[in-house]
């Protein structure tokens, strides 16, 4: 039982990075293509497009934080 819980915690930490990574990439893909479209119309929008494109990266940062907390804060308490 104990081992199962540990395995679930480790798996959760893995999933949180993978899933949020995919989510961020997916969001960025859409924003990025829209931004490139806008930049071809109006070149001054480059900086704004660049900043808008990195906005969803927050998602993966949250995921990374969650996984780090799971691995280094939750897991040691179980061991």
């Amino acid at each position: 039982m104990e081992q199962l819980i540990i395995a679930i915690v480790v798996l959760s930490s893995v999933i949180s990075v993978i899933a949020t990574g995919f989510a961020a990439a997916w969001a960025e893909k859409h924003i990025g293509s829209a931004a490139v479209g806008a930049i071809t119309e109006k070149e001054e929008l480059f900086s704004k497009g660049l900043v808008l494109t990195v906005i969803p990266e927050t998602i993966v940062i949250f995921g990374l934080t969650v996984s780090l907390v799971l691995l280094f804060v939750v897991l040691p308490q179980l061991l």
Binding site: E57, I61, L64, T65
Partner: peptide, 16 residues
């Protein structure tokens, strides 16, 4: 809250 949590990137980007 999400704004404050967003500053976690200071740690996360560095870590990567």
């Amino acid at each position: 809250m999400s704004n404050i949590l967003s500053y976690l990137r200071l740690m996360a980007i560095g870590l990567s």
